[in-house]
Write a protein that binds this DNA or RNA. Structure first.
Lengths: 119, 119
DNA sequence: CAGAATCCTCAGTGATACTG
DNA sequence: CAGTATCACTGAGGATTCTG
C-alpha cells in the first residue's frame, strides 16, 4: 500500500511526515502526550474522528514504534495506549504545532471580531 | 471543496494543519524559508512533486496568506514566491519538523547498517 | 469495551498535453 | 517560463453493522 510519504526519497520534513503525516496522527499523539489513554477515552477526546480511523491510525503508529499498546486480560476488555521513548522524541514537534495553532486561532478569532458588524 | 482540516472545529494541532496540512506544503515552505524562489526553481527542488501539484498547493498557501506571489511582466514570464510575514511565523514549526526528520533519517540509516549482513 | 468486517465515496493526486 | 486544461484513478477516509 505504497505509503504517501517515504523517508528514503523525500526531504527531511517528509521524513517527519512519514511518521506523523496521517489525518489523525498528530491529534492522537497530542492526546497521548498528556497521558496514557484507553481507546474509549481517545475516541471521546476526538469526536470528529470515527472509531475506525482512530484504530487504523493507532495501528500505523504502533507499527512505526511511536506508541505502545497495552492489553489487559479483563472483562470487559481494557486497552491502553502510550507513547514509546521514540514517540516522546516527537514532543517538540507536536508542542510547537500546538502552540502555533493556538496563536493562529486567536488571530483568526480577533479578525472575526474586527470585521463584525457594529451591533 | 470542504477542506480536510477546519481550525474552527478542530484542536490546536488541527488548526496548524489547516494551514500546512497539504501533501507538499511543508516541503514548499521549507524551500521558501531559505529564499524567495521562482516557480521553476521550486519544481527543480521538488522532483517528486508534479508541476500541477506544486501549483495547486501554492495557490492554497497564497489564499491563506502564507506566501506572496510576485509576477514580473517580462518575456519569458517570471514568477517568484516568498513567505509573507505571517508565513515566516511558521518557521519554528517547519524547522523543528526538519530537525526531527533529519535525526529520524540518521536513526533509520544506522539501523540499516546494524542489520546489514557482514560482507 | 475495543475493536473487526463491509461497503462505498469522493477529494486528493497524478499523467499528459496544450498555451500566452 | 509558468502555468492551464482534461482525464483518470486509487486509496484515504467515512458510515454502518457485527462480535469476543
Amino acid at each position: 500500500m505504497a505509503r504517501k510519504y517515504d523517508w528514503r526519497t523525500g526531504s527531511n520534513v517528509e521524513a517527519t511526515l512519514s511518521v506523523i503525516g496521517g489525518r489523525w496522527k498528530p491529534v492522537i499523539l497530542c492526546n497521548l502526550l498528556v497521558s496514557r489513554l484507553r481507546f474509549g477515552e481517545l475516541c471521546r477526546n476526538m469526536p470528529n474522528a470515527t472509531q475506525r480511523m482512530i484504530t487504523l491510525q493507532l495501528r500505523e503508529l504502533e507499527a512505526d514504534g511511536v506508541i505502545r499498546r497495552h492489553v489487559y486480560a479483563e472483562v470487559p476488555p481494557r486497552v491502553e495506549y502510550e507513547l514509546t521513548e521514540f514517540g516522546r522524541s516527537l514532543e517538540p514537534v507536536l508542542s510547537v504545532m500546538r502552540e502555533w495553532g493556538m496563536a493562529f486561532k486567536k488571530r483568526k478569532l480577533s479578525e472575526a471580531v474586527d470585521n463584525a458588524p457594529a451591533s
